[in-house]
Design a protein around this nucleic acid. Structure first.
Length: 420
DNA sequence: TCTGGGGTCCTAGGACCC
DNA sequence: TCTGGGGTCCTAGGACCC
């Protein structure tokens, strides 16, 4: 059994383009929260040499000069497009394993080259017709190889978005063409280390002495090397989430405790909603805050508390998080970022009762019903319809997004209008 | 003036135990 | 003179991913 990786090219930029035809064929970049830095580029913007991760304030004049279109990130839109993409793929793929917002692995039988081409070609056409997105498909003996094949599929127009490493006789040549930085699992630090040792390509990494790789990167390095050699990946398994986090940078730094509490409260409300959606409860809560990373004496601090009984009840989690917030606050530092982490997640139907804290069943149901009602009202009438007092009404710490597109697929009022 | 957010997994090292 | 050794559990932090 081979593995295929299917992903959507320039996903965030493509979502914006599929919604606004004026953007098609244009250089376009999508910015992170707070319009901080570039996190996606259309093919045209890539060609202009605009780099990923560049802070917007550093390049905004250049972008204007080049006529590059700008969008703030619109996660409601991308999340919705992703759900549509994945459910469409699931209809056409065996054992689809969603890996990220725009990627999924799937099992691929040993098709003949011709059969694979036909299947892949049809799938690309369907996705393009239904969603306006372009996908690439890479096939390999395992996930690592499928990732590499996918890159080759994208890089060489001749492959038309489809490449199978398992049927080519020139796999060594192809591996030689992949720079070490582009290997899945090799980040900046490891790439630098490899370069110093003269390892410049995926093929050289595959053929380097295992003991050196093991000494540097432990079992992860060895697994990676095995996969480059064609050994199968560990089997697909659906695992529950280990942690859930909400964190944001503030538009303006925070210097007083009340403001920090409001921000943390808002994150706790959102994190609790996520837990309930995931049908999970948290056994541990961490809150943290920090100044900007780019100042000379940065400050960062976190505090953690364990719960007697795991919970996804907003009120309970709020009271713990607010106590923790007092511990991490420091009046002498301009705080630029804060977050909450829900840890030790348990399936909500599988909670060990605490012997010393028995809560009568009817009380527990009452609390659950209250949360359910709030979630339903907020779903139906929009986020924030029912608000927690701790969150405050004025939000000096909210986000900046000056270039956001409409919630065209998730909000009825903003649905696109097509003129005949 | 302005530098994202949400995840996973692994390792090293400390605490504690016998 | 001479200061064990190995196992387990936990946590913080690093590295990576999209």
């Amino acid at each position: 059994m081979n593995t295929a990786l299917i992903d959507s090219n320039n996903f965030y930029a493509a979502c914006e383009q599929s919604l606004d035809p004026k953007l098609v064929g244009q250089p376009l970049v999508v910015l992170s929260n707070n319009d901080g830095c570039v996190i996606a580029r259309s093919a045209e913007a890539r060609k202009l040499g605009i780099r990923m991760g560049k802070p917007y304030f550093q390049i905004h004049h250049e972008l204007t000069k080049l006529g590059v279109k700008i969008r703030s990130s619109n996660y409601a839109l991308y999340g919705d497009m992703s759900r549509r993409l994945m459910s469409l793929l699931a209809e056409h793929c065996e054992n689809l394993n969603v890996y990220s917002i725009d990627e999924a692995f799937t099992e691929s039988r040993h098709y003949s080259s011709q059969e694979l081409q036909t299947w892949a070609y049809q799938l690309r056409a369907t996705v393009c017709r239904n969603l306006g997105l372009t996908i690439s498909i890479g096939v390999g003996a395992n996930k690592t190889q499928a990732k590499l094949a996918n890159q080759i599929a994208k890089a060489e127009p001749i492959h038309a978005g489809i490449f199978d490493l398992t049927t080519t006789n020139e796999s060594d040549l192809w591996l030689e063409s992949i720079p070490i930085e582009d290997v899945w699992g090799i980040g900046r630090k490891l790439a630098h280390w490899c370069r110093l040792k003269g390892i410049k390509t995926a093929r050289q990494l595959r053929d380097m002495p295992s003991n050196e790789l093991h000494a540097k990167c432990g079992v992860k390095g060895i697994r990676l090397q095995r996969e480059l050699n064609g050994h199968p990946s560990p089997t697909f398994s659906k695992t529950e989430k280990q942690e859930t986090r909400i964190s944001r940078s503030f538009k303006e730094p925070i210097t007083n405790l009340e403001e920090l509490k409001k921000a943390i409260s808002n994150y706790v409300v959102r994190a609790s909603e996520k837990l309930r959606q995931q049908k999970q409860k948290a056994g541990k809560v961490t809150v943290y805050t920090s100044t900007s990373l780019f100042i000379s004496n940065p400050y960062n601090k976190s505090a953690t508390a364990s719960l007697a009984l795991p919970s996804n009840h907003t009120g309970e989690l709020l009271s713990i998080a607010l106590q923790l917030t007092e511990k991490i606050f420091h009046p002498h530092y301009p705080l630029k970022k804060a977050g909450v982490l829900m840890q030790e997640l348990h399936n909500e139907n599988n909670i060990q009762q605490n012997l010393f804290m028995h809560i009568p069943l009817h009380k527990q149901h009452q609390k659950e019903n209250l949360m359910q009602s709030i979630d339903q009202l907020n779903n139906r009438f929009g986020a924030g319809t029912i608000q927690w007092a701790a969150c405050g009404s004025q939000r000096s710490w909210t986000l900046r997004h000056n270039h956001i597109s409409r919630a065209a697929t998730t909000r009825l009022k903003e649905i696109p209008i097509v003129k005949a």
